[in-house]
């Protein structure tokens, strides 16, 4: 193995480099014709004092509504939804808040539906990596192999409650970087 290039912070000034109008890096993962249930994922990034973090960037990666990815490692690649990008990116300039428009992902290899979430920010030398699960999937969550690795008392930090069904179903997933209620993070 050769030495990996180390990670460094995105710093405070990534906005003009990484947050741009147009594809592929936008908080909307769906185009017209995308299959499945459209949903919103909303939340706030909070620091160790509970203060919103206005200079973070989130990226999500997930399967389409059928649980497929448009990537050669997925045996169902050819069946992946052409109107679904899988990757979304959102800033948190508005008082630490973010909002993604996506679809509820299908099950991947029998896992409970989930969204991979990465957090980058000033003050983070390497990004944090986590998963969001869905609050209305209690039975699937109870059987999930990755969730079962998480201590029971911290599992709730990964489960986003369905907060409104008025309009698009909306799930709230707050990210607490540190301290009381710290979100569970996985190896990046």
């Amino acid at each position: 193995m050769i030495t990996q290039t180390p990670s460094q912070t995105v710093g405070p000034f990534f906005y003009d480099g990484l947050i741009r109008p147009g594809k592929p890096f936008i908080p909307t993962l769906v185009r017209d014709g995308a299959q499945g249930q459209r949903i919103l994922i909303v939340g706030t990034v909070l620091d160790g004092d509970g203060v919103p973090v206005p200079d973070a960037m989130l990226e999500i990666w997930q399967a389409d509504a059928n649980g497929y990815h448009n990537h050669p490692a997925d045996p169902n690649c050819a069946k992946a939804d052409p109107n679904f990008s899988g990757l979304g990116r959102c800033d948190t300039v508005n008082e630490g808040r973010f909002e993604f428009q996506t679809v509820k992902p299908g099950r991947v290899e029998g896992q409970a539906p989930h969204v991979n979430v990465r957090v980058f920010s000033r003050g983070m030398l390497i990004h944090a990596n986590t998963r969001m699960y869905f609050g209305d999937e209690a039975a699937a969550n109870a059987d999930d192999a990755v969730l079962s690795l998480v201590p029971l008392e911290r599992r709730d930090t990964l489960i986003a409650p369905l907060v409104t069904t008025n309009g698009l179903p909306t799930y709230r997933f707050n990210l607490v970087l540190q301290g009381q209620g710290e979100t569970v993070f996985f190896t990046p």
Binding site: D47, G48, G123, M124, A128, V150, L177, Q178
Partner: peptide
């Protein structure tokens, strides 16, 4: 800036 933004709990191997 890392002081208030560094996760403190052990990472879980994914």
């Amino acid at each position: 800036s890392t002081v208030k933004r560094a996760p403190q709990q052990p990472l879980i191997p994914l």
